[in-house]
Amino acid sequence: MSATPTSTPLDAGTLDHIGPPRSTGSWGKRIRSRLPGLVSLVIFLGGWQLAVTLTDPNPLILPSPGSVLDAFTLAVEDGQVWAAMQASAGPLAIGMAFSLLAVPLGLLIGLSPTADLIASPYLWGFFALPNVAFAPLLILITGFSTTTSIWMVFLSASVPLCLSCKDGVQSVDAVLVRAARSFGGGRTAVFVKVIAPCSMPFIASGVRNAISRGFVGLLSVELLIGANGIGGEVIQSARAYDTARMFAFILLLIAIALLLVSGSRRLEVWASRWREEVVI
């Protein structure tokens, strides 16, 4: 047959444009696509300022955006923001690094129905438990130290990561495994060539979840024990009735959380780029 398939979604002539249209990345376009978000941010800040101007509340309860900005600039100039970020980043990074051990563990659990039956009740039980609930117990065991934060990050992040790796393996299309076996693929080959790549989107979304859960876990410890990190600064400002400074650190938390989420979203999109249903 001379290349005339009866239904052809693409012509041979358009072959260099296979795949989703690449973003050509002109600045004007990028700003325009972010415009709704920017407008809503401006409206939010304007509404906040308006509410403060109109009702003139006690600054202890609702400070103005201006005074929050002042408190933030002051904290930046003091080096307190930088110090707090460093103090939080350490336990977060170490805890997250350890929780990556959950990836191979989750994959192995997914491979064995027996291991799944044994491990799943504990994993799901721990997953359902809010981490503030076991924080006091953890503090009791490890004391008021950085170790507590690291453990907390590890425990909060590794469990959802383990669960989604397990789900990834269990959702692998059985037909693909059969195809690999029909060509004589052994257990290792099937795992490396089919199961692991097929689970990649699940691993990536597990990492995304783990980052946010780990961050929340870290904050719950910092807020509870008033450690040096950003959460600690929030609670110390509240104790000193410095509401503007507290707001400044809360907004910093939100900004960091958004950065982490959007960064890990990129990872997820990259890992699942071969799936049709992913919207980039």
Partner: peptide, 28 residues
């Protein structure tokens, strides 16, 4: 000495045509 063609194709969605065709040889 045997090879199977499956009803629902059983192609690896993350591989191109060329890489999918290589798949059996890799496993063997």
């Amino acid at each position: 000495d045997r090879a199977v063609v499956f009803q629902d194709y059983a192609l690896l969605p993350w591989r191109t045509t060329e890489q999918n065709v290589r798949f059996g040889l890799e496993l063997q």
